[in-house]
Design a protein around this nucleic acid. Structure first.
Lengths: 338, 338
DNA sequence: AAAAAGTGTGCAAACGTTCCCAAAAACGTT
DNA sequence: AACGTTTTTGGGAACGTTTGCACACTTTTT
């Protein structure tokens, strides 16, 4: 804000002290006598003194801000993650700058670079479904920018990561479809290069194996753009239906809602005949028709954990050598009676 | 970021120039010769020079950041507004800090004050449904913080505002219910003090008048917390149903989805018998059951317009005396056949 | 030929902090 | 009475920019 606010200098002048004394008194340093501290604090209170965070940042060479790259905030999974992030960041006096990749690699890179030039102290990122080349992140990381990945994480990048138990979540969802009598279960999933895609595919396969159901590759459809284009989804649905699946397991939030829409739009007559299970954190899932079984990720907690890890990296005195990958359990919310 | 980056000083030293010359060359000032400019620009490019935004902010006494207060980003209306805001802000080189009030006055005030202390250059705000006292905003405003209101605006505050045509949107929705044969139309709405509540109530009443339907106050239910607590909604539904409405017109996004949920939960047998029309920007509305007629606000555009107005205030050389209230048209999306 | 105007550059202060270093004040010890 | 210690304070540089002003040098005008 450009409007006049009192500064340390003003306080110093008013009290006949030096700026250094005032600064130290405000930060409650041991060197300053109780008397002086009280004096300064009282006066600061009186004139409603607020430290200028920009000056502080310049001096301390850090901004107390962390950047977030999510696919899109309109997606409940990400908005919940963000809430988790904020709950921790706020406590520790960081603020948060949110960017959306909209599942585009180009946009993601642009945003990261914009954030970096904005002097963020650290980065929380879920990779876009298009992203394959993460060298630009590696660059920033080796230059000293702390990075923590969540949800969509790269394999070959040594840092903290926070993910859901994708294998188990997928296994449970697929098993649930099988146990309700489905035998031809399609799998609609994200772009092949995402970590979540691979892990969720494994869970799906494992459930099939357990119940001696043959895995048929043609029942698996990948969506390069993660469901951001409806044409992509409609195409996938169109290719899947001739195989007459009696169940579909869908691998992410946007895909789940998008797939149901595509089904309803292109083949309303079968939409209610196919059992659907999918990853989604939508808080409107109870309203959906057809209804579905959903795998909910612990999104809020994921944001919290990722932020704690990131801040620990930012504030670490010595370089970190031990990194962890936290795996959080998902929750299966079964479809109400059909 | 704390890692080494080159500064103007480094460039100056390397090129045997003064920092002022380099600074001016980079900003393409007329005083500097073409020759020198080229030299500086080339070298800056080579060392990948990025101006330090913090230093710049300190010197210029502005942060190139704008604050947003929304109810919650999980709400599609707000996420769309934010997308609109970002589209403009990004272009003009501002960045955006998002805060959520979760419809709580206390949280809203806290967030605004936090943002203000973070040196934002301007504020975009939609009031929480609890908010009645906006003196704290007035304070900041008179101290020089530019503020633009969107969606939920105060009456007695002279600044730019951007709203939807709430009257017409409500009128249209109510009329649509009437034209499809409904005569006992309830109105579920937000807290009484919000601007949108008042305007939408007027539209509802006007439609009743046009079709000679008596206005019955007991058919109007207010929700102080804007649908953030499910208990509040269930209570409202419980009070409404004995009056046997054949239609409900609902006045905001969160309330619309919340009301349908409450209906389904508490009275599933009637849920499909009541025609519902409501304000919502949910992009999942096609999936809902029961289906509904929705009034969509031009959220993206609202964000854009608000941001343009705000930036014009921030960058104005002289105090602004003429303020405008922009009113944007809503769109009625009719329910598919029942 | 001198004065005026124009062009290109550098010096140094300022933005509001933090923190190293020194200095002053208060106290105790011989 | 002289000297250490400890406690408390102040001076001033630094963080990386921007910008008013002064200066030197050219060119134009009278």
């Amino acid at each position: 804000m450009r409007f006049e606010t009192s500064t340390i200098k003003d306080i110093a002048k008013a009290l006949g002290l030096s700026t250094s004394t005032v600064s130290r008194a405000l930060r409650d340093r041991y060197e300053i006598s109780e008397e002086t501290k009280k004096l300064v604090l009282a006066y600061a209170e009186k004139v409603n003194y607020r430290a200028n965070p920009i000056a502080r940042s310049l001096k301390e060479r850090r901004s107390y801000s962390i950047g977030i790259i999510a696919s899109e905030i309109a997606n409940n999974f990400f908005s919940q993650v963000i809430n988790g992030i904020e709950s921790i960041a706020y406590d520790k006096d960081y603020h948060v700058i949110i960017s959306q990749s909209h599942e585009s690699y180009k946009q993601e890179k642009l945003n990261v670079e914009h954030l970096a030039s904005r002097s963020i102290d650290g980065l929380l990122i879920a990779l876009s479904s298009e992203t394959q080349d993460i060298d630009y992140l590696r660059d920033l990381y080796t230059k000293g920018l702390p990075i923590v990945f969540f949800d969509r994480v790269p394999e070959d990048f040594e840092t903290h990561k926070v993910i859901a138990n994708n294998f188990k979540g997928s296994f449970d969802a697929t098993e649930h479809l099988i146990l309700s009598g489905k035998r031809t279960i399609a799998h609609l999933t994200n772009s092949e290069n995402l970590s979540i895609t691979k892990e969720r595919l494994k869970g799906y396969k494992a459930a099939l194996v357990k119940y001696h159901i043959e895995f048929r590759p043609e029942l698996v459809k990948y969506c390069q753009h993660g469901g951001m284009h409806s044409a992509e989804l409609e195409q996938a649905v169109k290719e899947l239906l001739p195989l007459q699946p009696d169940g579909i397991f869908i691998s992410s939030d946007r895909l789940t809602t998008g797939c149901i829409m595509a089904l309803k739009k292109t083949n309303p007559e079968v939409a209610h005949k196919i059992a659907i299970a999918g990853f989604t954190n939508s808080n409107l899932v109870e309203l959906f028709s057809p209804s579905l079984t959903s795998v909910k990720q612990p999104a809020f907690e994921m944001g919290q954990v990722a932020t704690e890890l990131l801040i620990s990296m930012i504030e670490a005195k010595r370089p970190i050598t031990e990194f962890e990958t936290r795996i959080l359990d998902t929750e299966l919310v079964k479809m109400p009676k059909h």
